[in-house]
């Protein structure tokens, strides 16, 4: 968790932008607003974390287009769509593309806040997953074999026999894996293994 989570707001209506920013400020959330999708894309960075509140109907580039573009960039930020006219086909399309929610204006502020918090959690989870995967990917082939077997609950001795290496070597690999995955307990290691398997 290097970056603090930020709520990004994209809406062409200044009133809405201001309102949202201030509301989030009042509940102690970091926020950044953009008047158009392209303005956001210009500053987009893969390290950004948090969630995105996106107006569907905007001139030039609509919310759905922004969503598509982000998808192409492998962006994993959860998106909450808000719209003045909630038409079903658009909502379906948005959800299909992975939006986490679709809110109609006017909305109850608390609903929105709940959704945002939800989204932030999802984001956190996604980031964790993402981190787990990359950590696992950083393991060498031998280390990965050791990791798999440790997570399955196999004993060092069994692993050493299974892989045809000495027990001592397994222990060295095991400590490297723990170090690389930044885990201290076996339980944590197991959780990473589960997330990783889910992702694949």
């Amino acid at each position: 968790m290097t970056n603090k989570q930020t709520v990004f707001i994209i809406d062409d209506d200044k009133g809405i932008r201001d309102g949202l920013e201030m509301l989030l400020e009042s509940i102690g959330l970091e926020s950044r607003s953009f008047a158009s999708g392209s303005a956001f894309l210009d500053v987009y960075d893969a390290k950004m974390t948090g969630c995105l509140i996106l107006d569907i109907r905007m001139p030039k580039m609509s919310g759905l287009e922004v969503q598509r573009k982000l998808k192409q960039l492998n962006c994993l930020i959860p998106i909450i769509f808000i719209t003045g006219h909630g038409d079903i086909p658009m909502a379906v399309e948005a959800m299909r593309l992975g939006a986490i929610d679709f809110i109609r204006k006017p909305f109850k502020e608390q609903d929105l806040i709940d959704r945002i918090n939800e989204a932030l959690k999802i984001d956190e989870k996604i980031i964790n997953e993402h981190n787990s995967k990359s950590k696992v990917d950083s393991l060498s082939a031998r280390e990965y074999e050791v990791f798999e077997r440790v997570a399955d609950g196999s004993m060092n001795k069994v692993i050493a026999a299974d892989l045809g290496i000495s027990e001592r070597t397994v222990e060295v690999h095991r400590s490297h894996v723990m170090e690389k995955l930044k885990v201290r307990t076996l339980a944590e290691l197991v959780r990473i293994k589960i997330i990783y398997e889910q992702l694949n």
Partner: peptide, 12 residues
Amino acid sequence: QPLTAISLFSQT
């Protein structure tokens, strides 16, 4: 639009 904004400001 303005109504939504007003609502947001009020909550804030």
